[in-house]
Design a protein around this nucleic acid. Structure first.
Lengths: 213, 213
DNA sequence: GTCTATATTCAGATAGAC
DNA sequence: GTCTATCTGAATATAGAC
């Protein structure tokens, strides 16, 4: 009997990879519902295991959430630091950032709202975790690059912070406002998706148009 | 005894105005915590009454939420319809919209995140209620005005939807991203507020700069 | 209309067998 | 490691006196 049982154990460990199933399910549920709205039962169901397992792998709901939030926040500004160091000219850097950022959000539409919302609603956990997940070096480099190009007379004077806010606002906000936009315009998902595709080039040109001398 | 009790009743009805106290408290709690995160006990405490009263005035949590959401969603696009009909020139209309919109959000910083978040998380209640609260006539008028000015050759060609998205993105998003912006820039509340004040004129000029011929 | 007390439901967490 | 069964606490909701 005991032997029999051991075999089952080993088998289970080998092919199920429960932890990964939990993480996948938790990702979906937390990002869709938020910390307050998420249900452990829901996560367990999607992972096709039972609630007890969740607590076996991750002490409690908050711990599990923290793991998900950390990895998600880490995706917010992907490879931008490298991009800032590349030898693209300033306008092409902006084009590249806008395009890849919108594409990233198209792939993860709930991501911006999730991160922003949790940082607002749960300052403790959100902020603490965000700091660890994010190497904010990219913002500094971006600011420097903007100032350089201003001094070189290539772009009009503007507070770099405002320019950066403008860029990311136009990239991220439409996804956050999607239900409202659909309601106000009568668009369907497919058409909305097309609009967002267009924005990959349109937003960059809109910005460059505004700051170029 | 009965008489005595009647006097108390009448008095209470006269000076306490419980319903209003509940609405004020519910507004605060729901907007700050969201539907899922809000607690009836919390609302009762802030209104300085007990939970039973909440159910007496508003059947249940969802009903109370719906009232708050409806009135809040109704504030989203204030007097813009009138503004579009005014005889301001197109650029001044944009200046006026941006400025008054940002000012409105400064007065109600949680409003955009609240409405967007609930519409994403609770499609049923959010969307149903939003439709009733909003007279979306302003968007239509705005689109027409943009198209007019494009045909008149006053502004560069652009899909009106994108322009409208750009405008409201730059107005609203920084407030949604406030915790992240503070983290990334190291700004304090006071300085952040100053930035937002600046944006009342800056965002409009940024837009006009981009679309003007 | 307002309160206290209580019922009900739900969700997070644990115990213990296998 | 995984499951079933159970506990505990929290949160919504109701009953009933005044």
């Amino acid at each position: 009997m005991l032997t029999n049982w051991l075999i089952i154990m080993v088998k289970a460990r080998k092919d199920s990879n429960t932890e990964e199933k939990i993480l996948i399910a938790a990702r979906q549920v937390f990002i869709e519902k938020g910390l307050a709205g998420a249900r452990m039962q829901d996560i367990a169901d999607r992972a096709e295991i039972n609630k007890a397992m969740l607590h076996y792998y991750f002490k409690n709901k908050d711990m599990l959430f923290e793991v998900i939030f950390r990895e998600t926040a880490g995706k917010l500004f992907p490879h931008f630091e490298k991009l800032m160091e590349s030898d693209l000219n300033f306008f092409d850097k902006i084009r590249s950032i806008v395009s890849s950022y919108i594409e990233m959000i198209i792939q993860n539409p709930y991501l911006p709202l999730f991160v922003m919302n949790e940082m607002n609603k749960n300052p403790e956990i959100g902020i603490k975790t965000f700091f660890e997940a994010q190497k904010p070096g990219f913002v500094k480099k971006f600011r420097e690059s903007i100032e350089e190009n201003m001094k070189a007379g290539l772009i009009q004077p503007i507070n770099p912070i405002h320019l950066i806010m403008n860029i990311f606002s136009m990239c991220a906000f439409p996804f956050i406002a999607k239900p409202m936009i659909k309601l106000l315009t009568g668009l369907e998902d497919e058409q909305f998706k097309n609009l967002m595709e267009q924005r990959k080039v349109l937003v960059a040109e809109f910005i460059i148009n505004s700051i170029r001398k």
